[in-house]
Design a protein around this nucleic acid. Structure first.
Length: 273
DNA sequence: TTTATAACCTGAACGC
DNA sequence: TGCGTTCAGGTTATAA
């Protein structure tokens, strides 16, 4: 999946392709991270899709009387299909839209079923999944003073801190490694030991990495393709992620790999201090 | 309160 | 060829 850039690329790809009123819903498998509401068909029927927005890694589909909160988990994918297109394995949910002469299907596929599709008729930002999220990485709210306040008493490792969605949303395992490389900070440093100057560089690096990944259409690893089936290109630009024992693009030192919180982490022992 | 770990699930890649 | 093990983009609940 999908870190923030992949979710944003998905949202941008979906927006021009889907609109109109829901005319049917088919759920083949209810068991995602949380069980999908069995009444979804009744709830959504005749409701008009108003907009698609994003908060962190959540896509918010606004309907006439509420919101679908969609999370892609590790392996979730959304495609827009015609009625003729037969569902394949792990196509768990179809939402049919009446679009003039034809019907289009919003199709949710998720191999590992870590994703979620949740209906709420209240303010989605007050939903418990979204209410305590940190700022968007590209917003002005996410700045050096903010992050320094967050890290200065934290004993956990800096990579874990920037991946904490209560600190900043959208920085997943790939972009955490990439941002720390760009900032010249080792992922295993303790957060509270990082100087204010370094935090300034780190904030800039996170913004650059996320922005650049969105422009390139996200990373394509095993599972991510954008809505139209195109792969992203950002993986061609990974400087450290999944490059263990390959030469650093900056100094030729071999890229190192360690595990932090059960996640693979990659860094250059020379360029990062 | 903060931090680390286990758990959710499927499939691909690898070693024997 | 086949079986067992490990690993994969995330996030929550629970343990320490």
């Amino acid at each position: 999946m999908p870190e923030l850039p992949e979710v944003e690329v998905t949202r941008l790809g979906l927006t021009p392709l889907i609109s109109g009123k829901v005319c049917d819903v088919k759920i083949r498998n209810h068991s995602l991270r949380w069980p999908v509401n069995s009444n979804l068909k009744t709830i959504l029927k005749s409701q008009e899709l108003k907009s698609l927005s994003r908060r962190g890694k959540y896509i918010l589909a606004a309907f006439s009387s509420g919101y679908l909160i969609i999370h892609l988990g590790m392996s979730g994918k959304i495609s827009i299909a015609s009625e003729k297109k037969e569902p394949i394995k792990h196509d768990h949910i179809d939402i049919y839209f009446n679009m003039g002469k034809s019907k289009k299907i919003f199709r949710y596929n998720d191999t590992r079923r870590f994703g979620a599709i949740i209906w709420t008729d209240e303010d989605p930002f007050k939903h418990k999944l979204l209410s305590s999220l940190g700022p968007e990485p590209l917003s002005d709210q996410f700045n050096a003073s903010y992050l320094y306040e967050k890290v200065k008493r934290k004993k956990q490792l800096i990579k874990s801190t920037i991946m904490d969605s209560n600190v900043v949303v959208g920085v997943g395992n790939i972009y955490a490694s990439e941002s720390l490389f760009l900032a010249g900070i080792k992922p295993q440093r303790k957060s509270q030991k990082i100087k204010k100057k370094e935090i300034e560089v780190l904030v800039r690096s996170i913004k650059i990495v996320i922005q650049s990944a969105i422009k390139k259409g996200g990373s394509t690893l095993n599972d991510f393709y954008s809505v139209n089936g195109q792969s992203g290109y950002f993986q061609n630009e990974h400087k450290v992620y999944a490059r263990e024992n390959q030469p650093c693009t900056n100094c030729d030192e071999k890229i190192s790999q360690i595990r932090i919180s059960q996640r693979s982490s990659f860094y250059c022992n020379k360029c990062q201090v």
